[in-house]
């Protein structure tokens, strides 16, 4: 198998995730897009790990999974809080950071 197969798949997923982050308005959807990005990175790590016969990529991928879990937990807690306070999680309605 070509290593590029996996790397290009990762690149495609990454760019789809970027599009999602930019295009989505719903905060939960943005979080999902971020998960896409993280997974594409993981795919790259694993591919390189196999390519070089090195375990570090696997280790890092595990770390990313752990961090992603934490990030989703906190992110969703924030979304819930925002929703409870404002009855909306549309990101462009949250633009009250005007001082």
């Amino acid at each position: 198998m070509l290593v590029n197969n996996f790397l290009l798949l990762g690149a495609v997923l990454f760019c789809i995730g970027v599009y999602g982050v930019i295009a989505r308005k719903n905060a939960v959807m943005v979080l999902m897009s971020i998960e896409l990005i993280l997974n594409s990175v993981n795919l790259n790590f694993i591919a390189f790990s196999t390519l070089h016969g090195n375990i570090d990529g696997n280790t890092l991928a595990l770390f990313i999974i752990g961090v992603a879990a934490a990030e989703v937990g906190v992110g969703l807690a924030m979304v819930l809080l925002i929703f409870r306070n404002r009855k909306s999680i549309a990101l462009d309605e949250l633009s009250e950071m005007k001082g």
Binding site: A11, V12, F14, C15, I16, V18, Y19, G20, V21, I22, A23, R24, K25, N26, M29, A90, L91, D92
Partner: peptide, 18 residues
Amino acid sequence: DLDQPKAWLGVPVALLML
């Protein structure tokens, strides 16, 4: 109501990155 009004902005950016 899931998308931004300027969602199209993401397309060029994503394609450029890709």
